[in-house]
Amino acid sequence: MTPVPLSVVELQKAYGRKQVLRGFTLEARPGTVTAILGSNGSGKSTFMRCLVGLHVFKSGSIRVMGDDVRLGPAYRKHIGYMPQYPGFPENLTVREIAKLVSQVRKVAPDFKRGGEMGVEGFLDQKWKTLSGGMKQKVNATLAVAFDAPILVLDEPTASLDPASRLKLVDLLKRERNQGKCILLSTHMLGDLWELADTLAFLREGRVHAVPAKDMPGKGTDIGLFERSVAAGLETPVDGTGGTP
């Protein structure tokens, strides 16, 4: 039986005395986009960082393709990660950066997967010469180029121009249709309208998951949809799929 790509059970994470995640539970399936939503400081980034191994957590469990993430870094071959602020050694070219990541992952990158981002046009430019948007395109391309079954994206469209944003949304739709399990954190409600299958509202360290199709306006009225998502961030949402 194919394992669930991502299963999080009763995840707890505190910074000193401040408890940020209090029994965070979530499951994500192949071919779906789950949006992690919450107000500033609600723990979205904390969860994503626990998932990709940047944060150490004390209790609960995260399983990626059936592997417990605490057993070592090998599980991360299943994850394509796109952080909000990408960083690479300044004097390396994009080609060298891709080579470094491919040597660590032991898989050759397939730039055709993220072809619409146009990274092949500046493969030989040094990282320090790229604009913020270009860096984010490299970041997006590297996240998908290794054909990882799970994509974790932190504010993926934040520094992209409108045309590039649409291309990235199309790219993510295609990845989803090819069976990828996508988790994204975003404040761009328009992205949710186009991409999200599940909205996971984070409140007081717990998740309230709502199917996106149940949000008012979904599929018919983007303004209404965005207002209902925003309202969901303000008011309690029940965990059974009820609308706010």
């Binding site: 990709v52 191994g53 940047l54 070592g72 870094p73 090998a74 599980y75 991360r76 071959k77 994850i79 990660y81 952080p83 602020y85 990408p86 960083g87 690479f88 050694p89 990541v101 660590v104 992952r105 032991k106 970041n139 974790v152």
Partner: peptide, 16 residues
């Protein structure tokens, strides 16, 4: 200065 790089690389299958 390499915090961004470290964060990105730590999300790859490589140990700290």
């Amino acid at each position: 200065q390499s915090r961004g790089f470290q964060e990105l690389m730590l999300a790859q299958p490589v140990s700290r």
